[in-house]
Design a protein around this nucleic acid. Structure first.
Lengths: 173, 173
DNA sequence: TATGTATGAATGAATG
DNA sequence: CATTCATTCATACATA
């Protein structure tokens, strides 16, 4: 999505926001994906992108994202398909009927930013909504803990200590 | 890989919300990142985390990850395209419809909104409106943008590159 | 026009 | 530090 600020600064809003793979591109992508190569190397990505570029506009990034999404989606499907799932990604309402009040099709959200959500606003123009997305992070007047500055409710697994024993990964002193 | 949240409960925990940096936090982080310090030392991380904790819940972990991600993404500046490269903004609507029927011709779309108008949105919650006051003065994004290497929410579609100089993922072979 | 679905894109977090 | 994963957001598109 394009940044709203840019809109003010310049009037270049770009035309297309999202790449849409053509059938041909999809075919090639699926074919490669089917080979089990998983996330191809950057070089491979370039090749693929170049290959697909012949069938429509595409960038290496698109290819990369495609593979990433493909794989993630594949896994997700498997998990929910194998056995009875506890929850779905966006289907299968498991919410309590009593709770379903302000709940929107999206899902839960509001860890520290209860106020000012782009979703809380209604736009006369759908395009504008995209422009206001930055609001999600642009405001956070309160709702901060302050007491604990680490390992709080975030749920630290404890299985990893990023820089616990390594104190010399960046600075000498 | 372990899932700390799932471990706690077995059905519904509604936890694990990704830390979402506030605008203030982002500014501070970017500022520090701009200094070229790169990945700050552990002590520095603590300081930053403490600083940012004043503007929202945050852990040293978040800070650390942020810098790591920032650094990694920062490389996207350069693109490996040397010989051929797909157009960046050209629609290239040469897609023959007869070639792909199921293809979604996004070429049709070409509507761009003039700019962000507060009048175009209505607020369901009065609180939000108060928060949007800053919008009035945010007409000038350059105020806090400064650098163009900014990323985050303000990513320009088609101009970024996830991986850049890295030679190999490690997948090949 | 409004809602729902599918999916590309962004990002924080995890791993090597 | 580089790469990949998992989750969420936002958009394109189909449908009512």
């Amino acid at each position: 999505y394009c940044d709203p600020l840019m809109a003010s600064a310049g009037h270049k809003i770009t035309a297309r926001q999202r790449w849409t793979p053509s059938a041909v591109q999809l075919q090639i992508l699926e074919r490669i994906f089917d080979q089990g190569t998983g996330t191809p190397s950057k070089q491979k990505i370039k090749e693929i992108a170049s290959e697909l570029s012949q069938h429509g506009q595409i960038s290496e990034n698109n290819v990369y994202n495609w593979f990433q999404n493909r794989r993630a989606r594949s896994k997700r499907k498997q998990l929910g398909s194998s056995s009875n799932n506890a929850e779905s990604e966006q289907e299968t309402e498991v919410e309590s009927p009593n709770e379903t009040k302000t709940t929107k099709p999206e899902n839960l959200l509001s860890q520290q930013n209860p106020a000012l959500r782009a979703q809380d606003l209604c736009f006369q123009n759908p395009e504008i909504s995209s422009e206001l997305h930055f609001l999600s992070v642009m405001s956070n007047p309160n709702a901060y803990n302050g007491d604990e500055h680490m390992s709080g409710k975030m749920g630290i697994p404890g299985t990893y200590n990023i820089y616990d024993q390594a104190e010399d990964y960046g600075m000498a002193g």
